[in-house]
Design a protein around this nucleic acid. Structure first.
Lengths: 136, 136
DNA sequence: CTAAATTCTTGGACATTTTAAAAAATTTAT
DNA sequence: ATAAATTTTTTAAAATGTCCAAGAATTTAG
């Protein structure tokens, strides 16, 4: 990883341990929206001793720092997005998550005027093109 | 419950057991977006022998029949909505879910053109007015 | 460079939500 | 009322996520 990035993470008050760096690198530019288990499995060969707690701890702190986003597209498990795309498609068959990069301008409805809205997410549910043709 | 409604549920091929009717009645007009546990706890006094499995079985079949909606606003548990509101607000503090009844017209983006979109949900995350003032 | 302070990792136990399977009970249709 | 079909119950366990204490590693300060 580049020095510049290391400095960036340090400046956030993060101790840069090998496991942490590996998780950060794994997430960088990753479009798969991996679950904690995905990350754990992917890094286990390199860090056989790493525990699930480390993955969860790191993800939690990255979410807190605003560097990644936690998605609730799937009801049973969290998925993580290193990008800041607010909108997603979820395929109910293959469980794939796709960033939906649209310019929908959603205004907060009257009903929520006294509220503190921090985030707006749109989720499109259905079948992706592959699963759609397979299920015919 | 009225005869008309009983007939309606029968016509869907549902067997109307006391537990099932109680769950259906509990959900009807309910604005709380209860979790399975909420439902279980609410009906336990009337049906002390009812198990969690019954609640889950009934919810599953109601979702399949399209009578209720499963919400993934919270990462740890499913919430259920007897209405067909597609959009919701979730308070990250008190976990309250509110139906957002707006007329937002979302067009499916180009990117998803070959897909089979079955549902579009908007979720507003933040603090409700009560929690907002409390946290000041 | 070294020591101190802080934070992180590990490993296991634990909690919660959900699913599964088999036997017993209930409902529906005849 | 009887038989067939489905549902409920019970028990167990899967799946995901959380917590804790001890030891290890990293960073900071000197």
């Amino acid at each position: 990883m580049k020095k510049q990035k290391l400095e960036f993470y340090k400046s956030l008050g993060l101790k840069l341990t090998p496991q942490r760096l590996a998780i950060i690198e794994y997430l960088e530019g990753n479009k798969e929206h991996p679950s904690a288990e995905d990350i754990y499995n992917a890094l286990k060969p390199k860090f056989p001793s790493m525990s699930f707690a480390t993955v969860y701890n790191t993800l939690e702190i990255l979410v807190k720092k605003g560097l990644i986003k936690e998605l609730n597209v799937e009801s049973t498990r969290k998925r993580f997005d290193p990008s800041t795309h607010p909108h997603h498609f979820f395929c109910k068959r293959c469980k794939k998550v796709i960033d939906v990069d649209n310019q929908i301008n959603i205004s907060v409805p009257e009903q929520l005027k006294g509220f503190d809205i921090e985030d707006i997410q749109i989720i499109f549910y259905g079948l992706c093109s592959e699963c759609k043709s397979e299920s015919k």
